[in-house]
Nucleic acid binder design. Sequence first.
DNA 1: ACAAAGGTTAGCAAATATGCTAATCTTATA
DNA 2: TATAAGATTAGCATATTTGCTAACCTTTGT
Lengths: 107, 107
Amino acid sequence: MKKVKTYMDKLMEDKEFRKRFDEEYQNLCIGEQVARARHQAHLTQSALAKRIHTTKSAISRYESADYSGYSLPLLNRIANACGTDLRIIFSAKQTKDDLRIARQNSL
Amino acid sequence: MKKVKTYMDKLMEDKEFRKRFDEEYQNLCIGEQVARARHQAHLTQSALAKRIHTTKSAISRYESADYSGYSLPLLNRIANACGTDLRIIFSAKQTKDDLRIARQNSL
DNA sequence: ACAAAGGTTAGCAAATATGCTAATCTTATA
DNA sequence: TATAAGATTAGCATATTTGCTAACCTTTGT
């Protein structure tokens, strides 16, 4: 079981691979969470954009499935404008149960 | 209770104020979580940096108290290199109990 | 069909983070 | 004290995100 790590480490040395691995494999589904928080706050993309002094195109970009370049400053502004708190947690590797519970607790 | 929101909205129109509000008031303590995850993985800043193909100064920057410009791509690489999962959750506004529980569950 | 509101996309300048080097400070330990 | 490892900081070029405009697509309702 050591070879996989060795192999991955090798792949990860390539910048382009790292980037696409993050984008296409390690999907955190932030976009869906943004959209869900916004809907629960009964806001349109335009209305949310206005609250945080940006434009609807920026919100759309954040809710788009194939975006991954999120920053905490902007995510935080979005969360607050939707009446929520943004929680960032370094947690132990998750089991399926963890994921189910996390889904229940979040919006 | 409407005046505070009106006042804050006015203040928030100023870009410099927004920036400093995020940095100095809305402290998410990401730096502490990064340091804690790294320590639990028994890694030095240099060792962690090597794993994610950056330098120790970048790690130090992320662990510094007065930094706030975190990006999810880099936080995610850090979390994984420390053997943890990064969880981003838009949650209901927290009570003190919520915070206590979150602290217990995270590293 | 038409209009209006909500949402998406492209493209670009400005702002911001990243990667990097080198110098410096701390701490532990021989 | 001297040495080495760990950590912090400054400064800069490069890379990435943000804010913005304008065009376009979708959906809803008349």
